[in-house]
Nucleic acid binder design. Structure first.
Length: 411
RNA sequence: GCGAUCGUAGCUCAGCUGGUUAGAGCAUCGGUUUGUGGUACCGAGGGUCGGGGGUUCAAGUCCCCUCGAUCGCCCCA
């Protein structure tokens, strides 16, 4: 393997592909401001325990997908595989509790050692939104509304469906889990090999198996609804009626569960058919117990993360930035004068560039390729008269303009 | 971690059952035009055929290993 080969599962993007990612982040930034989510910055690396303790030791994410290493001081460090745990660590160690309830947003890269495929990378990028210190169902509604409005802002809400479920409070969840294990033990011989393994580690996960054998068995499996405490039932009812009021369309999926151990109550995914098997573009839920497992006080919270690459694949291509004018200097005096003019135009807010290589043909061709509206030709003859030739690149029309009135002529 | 398909120029690809110096389009560069782009025409550069090993008189083509990509599974945003 040559050292020039990129690390597997990483991407280097130029032009439109990079613009798409930036457009997703820009849309998120507009929407989160509208909703009053405050921007936070958190580290890319944390002590390994931050993730190991919260995400769940038995999950694949912790047991085989984390980028963990020992630093030079002998401490075990991990590249974040997700945002939530690190944000909660910061909430505790930075004393953000004083601001609770807190609506927070961030974005950046995260890392998982997985087999790359469409919409899945080893270094990937997420948008992340969390509401910490709010146990009310209104917080869930607000967070889901934020997700929905983001999709609207990106112009892809039509192709995405919100699937919603409840995992219940710890009491409900535990009762459901027990009855699921009983049920699946009774049908063990009919389950896929994967699901037999899940029976030990994460029985809830059998419910969203894609295997047809599992699906048949799951259709008769006990539902959460039979195990919900009345508090958990009421909570979910408040979330769903809130969504109706907010005008956020949703669909109940009683088999939707979450992969990470910290989730309680509301669980959801915004899913699309357009991306193949990596169909979840935004996913999350309520994680009331997480901050306690980090050693903090009981603190209810909800959050979601969105895959920037996945959203970027779905949106229309953003328009490429084009200069209004490209300056084409010809001659030594013109070269320095062009720099002066270029700087002046930019100071006045005119998107301007300069073609400084090759003969005139080359330079005009460069101007044309840039998509500019005008080329501004500056030669020694024009300079003597304090003028330049302004050429409309679409029509080919060309006229003399005074150097003093350039910005006006271009605008 | 498992399965399948694939890897030829900067990009998209052709190269039939193994057979002379591996091709095309686009892009790049030069020219037709030493101060006029977009169109057209002429020309040039650019390839250890992902890498390594093997079979064969002969391998881009067949076999094995390896790296990577893609699509599923797993996992998950």
């Amino acid at each position: 393997m040559t050292p020039l080969q990129p690390v597997r599962g990483t991407q280097s993007l130029l032009g439109e592909d990079a613009d798409r990612m930036a457009a997703v982040v820009a849309a998120f930034d507009r929407v989160r401001r509208l909703f009053g989510f405050r921007r936070v910055e958190v580290p890319t690396i944390e002590q390994t325990g931050v993730f190991a303790r919260t995400i769940g030791e038995t999950t694949d994410v912790v047991s085989k997908e984390m980028y963990s290493f020992e630093d030079r001081g002998g401490e075990s460090i991990t590249l974040r595989p997700e945002f939530t745990a690190g944000i909660c660590r910061a909430y505790l160690s930075e004393g953000w509790q004083q601001f609770a309830p807190l609506k927070l947003a961030t974005h950046g890269s995260a890392f998982r050692y997985e087999r790359p495929q469409k919409g899945r990378f080893r270094e990937f990028h997420q948008l992340d939104a969390e509401i910490i210190g709010a146990g009310e169902p209104q917080a869930d509604v607000e967070l889901l509304s934020l997700g929905h409005q983001l999709l609207v802002e990106l112009g892809i809400a039509d192709g995405v469906r919100l699937e919603l479920n409840t995992l219940g409070d710890p009491e409900s969840r535990e009762a459901w889990r027990t009855s699921l294990i009983d049920y699946f033990e009774g049908h063990k011989s009919g389950l896929s090999e994967d699901s037999v393994a899940r029976l030990q580690r994460n029985p809830l996960r059998i419910l969203d198996s894609k295997d047809s054998r599992d699906r048949a068995i799951c259709s008769e499996a006990p539902s959460v609804d039979q195990h919900l405490t009345s508090e958990a039932f009421d909570f979910f009812a408040d979330v769903t009626s809130g969504l109706e009021a907010a005008g956020v369309p949703w669909k109940r999926n009683p088999r939707l569960v979450r992969g990470l151990d910290y989730y309680r109550h509301t669980a959801f995914e915004f899913v699309t058919e357009r991306l193949g098997s990596q169909g979840a573009v935004i996913a999350g839920g309520r994680y009331d117990g997480l901050i306690e497992t980090l050693g903090g006080p009981h603190t209810p919270a909800v959050g979601w993360a969105a895959g920037i690459e996945r959203l970027a694949m779905m949106i229309d291509a953003p328009e490429r930035e084009k200069p209004s004018v490209v300056i084409v200097p010809l001659g030594e005096r013109a070269d320095t004068e062009a720099v002066r003019i270029l700087a002046g135009l930019r100071r006045e807010g005119v998107a301007a560039d300069m073609a400084y290589r090759g003969n005139m043909k080359k330079r005009l061709s460069k101007a044309n390729d840039s998509g500019a509206t005008y080329a501004l030709i500056i030669g020694d003859d024009e300079l003597d008269r304090g003028e330049a030739q302004l050429k409309d690149l679409a029509t080919g029309d060309q006229r003399s303009v005074s150097l003093d009135l350039l910005a006006e002529a271009i605008a």
